[in-house]
């Protein structure tokens, strides 16, 4: 299994965040952010020979880092991701326009799962996925590369804001309906991914955090 980084994130109770996501809520100022370094996903792991051939001379995973903040408010887990996107793609406006996106990944059992393969049949992962311009938030599961099964979620809500060359995306979901288990220790693991639409990134072509980060949910 993939080791966790030394960084430990906490989701402490923060009054004022409410139950709905708000990327610009003033209450986020009370939450310390952590900068998570991202790397391109390995090209040789892309589950399509076409994708490998098409991108072998082209850089993907161009978003170098993402800032993450977590909090809880009355049983709702909030997350806020922010990253630089000087040339945003807020919607699909043409055949060859790809939207910006980001995702949070959790071991479905809250404890562990192989991150490099996005889970396995025995150890699946849960993802919270935001795609710019999409009508709904996606809450999904995966048990290996190319196996993401996502559904429009009634429990997960997402709001995004683009300003001053940055995306700020807020997620909110009841802890007891988050798609992953929270152990008694209140420690879960989380990983991050972001897609640059301007660079035509989609599917497995993305920036990701190559190791789990520990998240303590109060």
């Amino acid at each position: 299994m993939t080791a966790a980084t030394e960084v430990k994130l906490t989701a402490a109770e923060v009054a004022g965040l409410g139950s709905k996501p708000d990327p610009t809520a003033k209450a986020w100022a009370k939450v310390a952010g952590a900068t998570i370094a991202l790397r391109p996903t390995p090209l040789d792991r892309q589950p399509s020979a076409y994708v490998q051939a098409s991108w072998k001379d082209r850089q993907h995973g161009v978003i170098p880092a993402i800032e993450a903040r977590f909090a809880t408010c009355g049983g709702v887990l909030h997350a806020r991701l922010s990253w630089e996107a000087a040339d945003p793609r807020p919607a699909i406006t043409d055949n060859n326009v790809f939207p910006d996106a980001c995702a949070l990944l959790f071991p479905t059992d809250g404890k562990d799962a192989p991150l490099e393969t996005m889970g396995s049949p025995e150890k699946p992962v849960t993802l919270w996925h935001w795609r710019a311009g999409a009508e709904a938030a996606f809450l999904g599961t995966a048990s290996g590369l190319g196996t993401v099964d996502r559904t429009k979620s009634n429990s997960l809500a997402i709001e995004a804001d683009w300003a001053n060359g940055r995306w700020t995306v807020a997620f909110a979901c009841p802890v007891n309906n988050a798609g992953f288990a929270v152990p008694n220790s209140r420690e879960v693991r989380v990983a991050f991914a972001a897609w640059s639409g301007a660079n035509s990134e989609r599917a497995g072509l993305k920036s990701h955090s190559p190791a789990w980060t520990t998240l303590v949910i109060s």
Binding site: S48, Y50, V51, S54, I92, T93, D94, N95, N96, F98, A134, V148, R150, R202, A203
Partner: peptide
Amino acid sequence: CHGYRFCAEACPYKRVYFNQKRA
């Protein structure tokens, strides 16, 4: 389908379309 459009790139006859409303 998640609308990644690799299929549309790969078809040499360009017979795959993209439904932007449904992605």
